[in-house]
């Protein structure tokens, strides 16, 4: 669905943000895109949506390079940025103005989502809504476009506590076989259950990209008092023992994968983790 080949990008010469990055994103998946501050997550999303152009290499969405910004490609991509302003028009005016760019836009769905998020329709201008309100409006609009590619940068930032739960419900109902969603975030706990693919961007490349299912099958996290007896790949001291990440053995019980812990392990030990997966860095 999204094909990225040997992509290079830098804002300043000699200071590459993304270098020789390869990545294939499939439909029917929700990717959690993780990385340290400045890893280039937002840049990557901007390249995927055609807002930035690759220095070299390719970024194709549904078979066309995004830098060409073909209308038929653009109508299948929607971006919810981390921070954004909306114009001084009413929600209804915004919908009337922007919906025609998305042939599959569903007005009933838009109404349903606004209701779910308890958004006021009224005459209040979007520019006067709070960040959280604007974000809920844009998320609703994004889903109602029925665009097959949904790119979201920190979607839960600015949402109040009940809205985070509503966001998860809305995303669960919006995830279909045809749609590919990429969520870039540091809020692992907010979104842990929503993603089914864990993708880590580090030093300009994707160093880890696996489905949650294959992670559960391949790795195991145990807490032990005897770390030296365990084939540890990565460990952290915690209250009551040592938390160890190791290759899963046939007898190991199903252990939940703490994504924050896994993230730290990936940043430090991706070279040791990837060989455990059948298809190297991607599975």
């Amino acid at each position: 669905m999204i094909q990225i080949k040997s992509l290079n990008f830098s804002f300043k010469k000699g200071n590459p943000i993304l270098s020789d990055l390869d990545m294939t994103l499939q439909p029917g998946r929700t990717y959690g895109l993780f990385g340290l501050n400045g890893a280039g997550k937002s840049t990557l999303l901007n390249l995927m949506s055609g807002m930035l152009f690759p220095e070299s290499g390719q970024c194709e969405v549904l078979g066309s390079p995004t830098k060409e910004r073909l209308p038929e490609t653009m109508s299948e991509i929607f971006v919810v940025p981390e921070q954004f302003d909306l114009p001084g028009i009413t929600p209804q005016e915004y919908i009337d103005l922007h919906a025609p760019f998305y042939p599959a836009f569903d007005r009933e769905e838009m109404d349903r989502l606004c209701e779910e998020f308890v958004l006021e329709s009224g005459t209040k201008l979007l520019s006067e809504h709070s960040l959280g309100q604007r974000k809920k409006f844009l998320i609703s609009f994004a889903l109602a476009t029925n665009a097959r590619i949904l790119l979201m940068d920190e979607p839960t930032n600015g949402l109040d506590i009940p809205s985070k739960s509503r966001f998860r419900k809305v995303m669960a109902s919006a995830s279909t076989e045809e749609r590919c969603t990429v969520i870039s975030t540091h809020q692992v706990r907010d979104l842990e259950a929503m993603i089914d693919r864990f993708t880590v961007l580090h030093m300009g490349v994707v160093i880890f990209d696996h489905t949650i299912e294959s992670i559960l099958e391949t790795l195991s996290i145990v807490t032990t008092h005897l770390p030296e007896t365990t084939e540890s790949i990565y460990h952290e001291e915690i209250l009551g023992g040592t938390k160890v990440l190791k290759a899963r053995e046939p007898d190991d019980p199903d252990s939940p994968i703490d994504l924050e812990f896994l993230f730290s392990a990936v940043i430090e030990k991706s070279d040791k983790l990837n060989p455990l997966f059948q298809n190297g860095a991607t599975s």
Partner: peptide, 17 residues
Amino acid sequence: VREIAVRMEVNPNTAIR
């Protein structure tokens, strides 16, 4: 599957398992 995914706030691929 979808109703459960929405109710439990999880990805449908997780629920289906």
